[in-house]
Simulated scan of single mutants.
Amino acid sequence: MTHRAIDLNERFDQFSETWSPKVITTLNDYEIKLVRLDGEFVWHAHQDTDELFLVLSGKLTIQLREGEVRLSAGQLFVVPRGVEHCPITEGGEVRAMLIEPAGVINTGDAGGELTASYDDSLS
């Protein structure tokens, strides 16, 4: 096994689609994912897990039914399990890292056309 650093910029250069998380590595039972975000997602919740958003570039708002959390590059927010939320970008594309248990579906309980296929091709 070869040990090497993972270059996030190189991984982002390998895909352009938005709202479709890509697994870049695993940590125990968790997946570390990169995602490009642009526009508004769907309202959804993850009943069985928290969801961590770490903004790497751009500005992201996590809309919550009881308010919102605004994030800039270098900031993170953990959406607690079961809390309905809707990510929306401000002023263009956001690059973010997600940390979630293996197998989490990006649209949670909402489903629909923005549900991404499982993609670990960058790991």
Rank of each mutant, 00 (worst) to 15 (best):
M1E: 11
T2H: 10
H3F: 00
H3G: 08
R4K: 13
R4A: 14
A5H: 12
D7F: 12
D7K: 10
D7C: 08
L8C: 07
N9I: 12
E10R: 12
R11H: 12
R11C: 04
R11P: 02
R11D: 01
D13Y: 00
D13F: 00
D13I: 00
Q14V: 02
F15K: 03
S16I: 06
E17L: 10
K22P: 04
V23D: 00
I24K: 09
T25C: 14
T25S: 15
T26M: 02
I32D: 01
I32F: 14
K33L: 13
K33A: 03
V35C: 09
R36Y: 14
R36Q: 09
L37N: 03
F41E: 03
F41C: 07
V42K: 02
H44E: 15
A45E: 05
A45S: 15
A45K: 14
A45I: 01
Q47C: 00
T49L: 01
E51M: 12
E51H: 15
F53K: 07
F53P: 01
L54T: 11
V55N: 10
L56S: 08
S57C: 01
G58K: 03
G58C: 04
G58V: 11
K59G: 05
K59A: 15
L60S: 10
L60V: 13
T61S: 06
Q63R: 09
L64G: 02
L64T: 06
R65E: 11
R65K: 13
E66D: 15
E66P: 07
V69Q: 14
V69F: 04
V69I: 15
R70Q: 13
L71P: 01
S72M: 03
S72F: 05
S72W: 08
A73F: 09
G74P: 12
G74K: 11
Q75Y: 09
L76K: 04
V78N: 07
V79Q: 08
V79C: 12
P80E: 10
R81Y: 05
R81M: 12
R81D: 03
V83D: 07
E84H: 05
E84G: 01
P87F: 11
P87E: 00
I88T: 13
I88Q: 09
I88V: 15
G91R: 08
E93Q: 08
V94R: 03
R95N: 07
R95V: 00
A96Y: 01
M97E: 06
E100G: 05
E100L: 15
E100H: 07
P101W: 07
A102R: 13
G103L: 15
G103A: 11
V104L: 15
V104H: 08
N106K: 05
T107C: 13
T107P: 14
T107E: 07
T107S: 12
D109I: 12
D109W: 02
E113Q: 10
T115M: 11
T115L: 08
A116L: 06
A116V: 10
S117N: 10
Y118G: 02
Y118M: 11
D120Y: 06
S121Y: 05
S123R: 13
S123E: 13
